[in-house]
Amino acid sequence: MTLVLTGAPEAEPVTVSEAKSFLRLAGSSEDTLIEGLIRAAREDVERATGLALIDQTWRLALDAVPRSDVVLLMRHPVREIIAVTAYGTEGEAALVSAGDYQADLISRPARLFFRARPEPMRALNGLEIDFRAGFGEAGPDVPDLLRRAILVLVAHWYEFRASFGPDEQPVAYPPQYERMIAAHRDRRL
């Protein structure tokens, strides 16, 4: 099972001007640095929580439909199933009809239940599921606590830009950041 980002977000949940205001910075000499810190902080929040903050497209490649006939989509929230493609033994692509599967986009993780298994499929990466995930197209669509977690992480990384030794750690993550994202982490039994 491989999950690949096929379409990156077109915006960030936090703007450079919002971050500069939070950092109490004037001028534009460090805008490029702040822009990079925002992107890195968003990616870190997404990695730690399993969320897609701003709309983005993903492809899940599987060798086969699981025995349970249920495929889990490990990005949340899933907004749309774009396409399900099965590859035959000779590599020919065939779109799987939407009537052959049922999508549960409310659950976390989102699920696809296959009513009819596409077969025969090639042995490796025989099934691809393309989907769109995210809270929306712009920063205000993202939960406020996650936007603030990004700002806290940007500020922390901005302040501690120099290198630190192992005996001076942890400086990578402020404690309030961990508390802010804790409620959004995907918990499993």
Score class of each variant (00 low, 15 high):
Ser163Ile: 12
Ala172Glu: 08
Arg179Lys: 13
Thr32Cys: 00
Ala110Arg: 01
Pro166Ala: 12
Leu51Asn: 08
His156Trp: 13
Pro120Ser: 08
Ile38Lys: 00
Gly50Pro: 03
Glu128Lys: 10
Val84Cys: 11
Val154Tyr: 03
Ile150Val: 15
Pro9Phe: 10
Leu145Trp: 00
Thr6Leu: 10
Leu72Trp: 07
Val16Ala: 01
Asn125Lys: 11
Glu128Val: 12
Leu60Glu: 04
Phe113Val: 06
Val65Met: 05
Phe113His: 15
Glu35Asp: 14
Arg59Ala: 13
Leu51Ile: 07
Leu189Glu: 09
Ala94Phe: 08
Ser28Ile: 04
Pro140Trp: 09
Leu151Ser: 07
Leu151Lys: 13
Glu90Phe: 06
Tyr173His: 11
Ala11Gly: 01
Val65Cys: 02
Gly165Thr: 13
Arg147Phe: 01
Val65Phe: 05
Leu53Glu: 00
Trp157His: 15
Ser29Asp: 06
Ala98Val: 04
Gly99Thr: 06
Thr32His: 09
Phe114Ser: 02
Gly88Tyr: 11
Val96Lys: 00
Leu5Gln: 11
Arg42Thr: 09
Phe164Gln: 06
Ala61Gly: 08
Pro77Ile: 05
Glu178Arg: 12
Gln176Val: 12
Ala110Thr: 01
Ser21Cys: 03
Thr2Gly: 03
Ala182Ser: 14
Ile129Thr: 05
His76Trp: 15
Val4Tyr: 06
Val171Phe: 06
Trp58Asp: 03
Ala40Ile: 02
Leu151His: 05
Ala48Met: 10
Thr32Tyr: 09
Pro66Ala: 10
Gly88Cys: 10
Ala138His: 13
Val171Ile: 08
Val4His: 08
Ala172Lys: 03
Ala103Gln: 05
Pro13Leu: 01
Ala183Trp: 00
Pro13Glu: 00
Leu145Ile: 13
Gln102Ser: 09
Thr57Leu: 02
Ser17Gly: 02
Glu80Leu: 09
Ala83Thr: 15
Pro77Tyr: 03
Val14Met: 01
His184Gln: 03
Pro174Asp: 13
Trp58Tyr: 14
Leu153Gly: 01
Pro175Ile: 07
Pro9Gly: 08
Thr6Cys: 04
Asp55Pro: 03
Ser21Asn: 15
Ala83Lys: 12
Ala103Gly: 07
Met74Tyr: 15
Ala26Lys: 09
Ala48Glu: 14
Asp144Ala: 14
Thr89Pro: 11
Glu18Leu: 06
Arg108Met: 11
Asp186Cys: 05
Arg79Glu: 12
Asp55Glu: 13
Ala61Trp: 00
Gln169Leu: 11
Ala48Gln: 13
Asp104Leu: 01
Arg147Val: 06
Val171Asn: 03
Leu5Asn: 03
Thr32Ala: 13
Val70Arg: 14
Asp63His: 15
Leu37Ala: 04
Leu153Ser: 05
Pro109Tyr: 07
Asp100Phe: 08
Ala116Gly: 08
Arg24Glu: 11
Leu146Phe: 03
Arg161Cys: 01
Val96Trp: 06
Ala110Met: 05
Ala172Gly: 05
Ile82Met: 02
Leu72Gln: 14
Leu146Ser: 03
Gln56Leu: 06
Leu73Thr: 03
Ala19Phe: 05
Ile150Pro: 00
Phe22Ser: 02
Gln102Phe: 07
Leu189Val: 08
Thr57Ile: 04
Arg147Gln: 10
Ala162Pro: 00
Val152His: 15
Val154Phe: 09
Leu112Tyr: 04
Ala11Pro: 00
Arg42Val: 07
Val71Leu: 06
Leu72Phe: 15
